[in-house]
Every structure is written in C-alpha cells, then in structure tokens.
Design a protein around this nucleic acid. Structure first.
Lengths: 135, 135
DNA sequence: AACGATTAAATCGTATACGATATAAATAAC
DNA sequence: GTTATTTATATCGTATACGATTTAATCGTT
C-alpha cells in the first residue's frame, strides 16, 4: 500500500527531525513556519498558509505559540486590517542561524545521496499535486 | 526539501482518501486499523500497533471509537489479561466488503501505473526504515 | 511462595490537522 | 453611498500523534 508507506514515512521523518529540533524548542510544523519566515520575513498568515498548505485554523494557534516563545510578532497590517503580518524578532532571526545545519543533518540521516533525495522530493511533489483536489 | 514533500504529500494522501472513506464513516487511521483486522481478525492492540507503528496512547481512543461505532469488540485475552483482543463484529466484516474497492480508487487518483506506485512504495518504505531510530 | 523487573494497555497533557462557523475588513454592485 | 459579497483570520469541536506516567498482569529469580 503506497498510502501506508507515505503515512509511516511521514511519521518517521518527523521522528527523525525531533532530536534536531528539540534543542531549539521547536516542533516540525513550527520549524516549517519559521523556515518560511527565514526565507522571507514579514509574510502574512495567508502567505505562510499557502506555502505550507495549511489554513488559519491550524496556523493561528501555532503562530501564537511562536509569538509566546518570542520568535515572532503578530501585527495587523495597517493598510489591510484583515491581514496579520508575521515578523521575526531578533531572537527569531538568531534561531535561524542555529537551525541552518538542520536540513543537512536530516539529509545525512536519510542515507540518500543529494541526487536521490532530490529525485524523491520531485516524485513526492508530483504525486501530491496530482492528489490535490482538481478545483 | 524532501521533508516538506513528504509532509505535504502525506496530507494530500489523507485528503484524497477522505471522499472514499467519508461514506463509510471512517477516518484514514481508523481505516488502517480495520484493514489490519480485515487481513487477520482477533489481533491484540500491540499487534495492530506494530503493524501501524503506533502506540496504545494513540490506538486506545481510536479503537474505542471503532467499538462505539459497532465495527469491533475489545476484550481482555483470557490467557493473558494484559492484552486486549480486537474482534470484528458482523457489521465490521461487512464494512470490509464495502471498503474493498477503496485502494483501487486511490491508485486511480494517483495517476500512477501499478509499477510506478509499487516502486514509490518501496522507496518510501526503505527511507522510513532508514529513518527509524537504530535501537 | 515472594518479590523485583518486565510487559501491555490505559491515561494525561500538549500540539497538530481540519471541517464548520463566526467576525471584521475590504471590495463590488447598484 | 449603502448594501451584498468576498476575503483574511480566528474560534470551536473532533480526531489523531506522541512523550510521560500509571496500572495491572506476567515472568524471572531466588
């Protein structure tokens, strides 16, 4: 069953990330959200949601925890008060430097060559996009 | 990022299963647990956990819901009272027949050939087993 | 037989996910 | 310009996941 392989591999991936992220005090989804901000600071909740394919019902509590932990601030956009802009704090930016080596540590844990990992990533992304509802 | 491809593909997979499982009144993890019992009835919580790579903290509530829904019964093993044996009800077995076509519907949704799906399943399983902690 | 160690489930607390709904701001229609 | 619609977040309820602890039963050793 392809579905179970995907399901269990995703769990194993998060478990493999845990020892890398625990020292930073982050969960894997929190790390993903911060990664988006390390790439481009000042994004809105909706932009992060588009990148991570998650909705505000999941993101709002997660982002509040990141705010609580002192990594980001959440502020309504002054030109469009519907949107909430996320800004890294000084600590949040510094955490990004500490987290820089995480992806390489993970690649190492997979035992894959960079090429094999890239291939698998592309296959998975293609599969995901085919599975996404046609609307 | 391979990790995000895995994460998002797993979510997309569960979303793709939803329209197939909603008519049966099952979530994807519930479907997995029942699949194990359709393959071999009368397994213990621990056996299901080994197959699904989940612990009793996740399974016990899930199995109670399956019991509540009338698909299974949960009974302490008479020879080893520590273990809980799961038995399909008449309805639970009947549900298995109704669910028989789900995997093929899913394969169809992936747009993959059977060979390509098998290949990807094996790659993911191998990755998962490499990621699993060495102990 | 007795008791410490191990094992199998269950329980508890926290953090995702996600459907459904609510709220408030911005836009569109008239 | 007011109202209907749309859009961006937030809130609520339910269902996983999983670390840590608890409980009860079995096993191992003496």
């Amino acid at each position: 069953m392809l579905c179970f392989a995907l399901y269990s591999a995703a769990h194993a991936m998060q478990a493999a990330y845990k020892p890398l992220l625990d020292p930073l005090g982050l969960t894997y989804p929190q790390y993903l959200a911060l990664s988006a901000l390390w790439a481009e600071d000042g994004q809105t909740v909706g932009q992060i949601g588009a990148a991570l394919m998650l909705d505000s019902n999941t993101l709002t509590p997660l982002l509040k925890r990141l705010e609580q932990a002192g990594w980001i601030t959440r502020r309504r956009d002054s030109t469009d008060e519907r949107q909430v802009r996320l800004t890294l704090t000084e600590d949040g930016r510094a955490l990004g430097a500490r987290a820089a080596e995480v992806p390489l540590c993970f690649l190492d844990r997979t035992g894959l060559t960079l090429d094999a990992a890239t291939q698998m990533r592309d296959d998975l992304t293609a599969l995901r996009d085919r599975l996404r509802p046609p609307r």
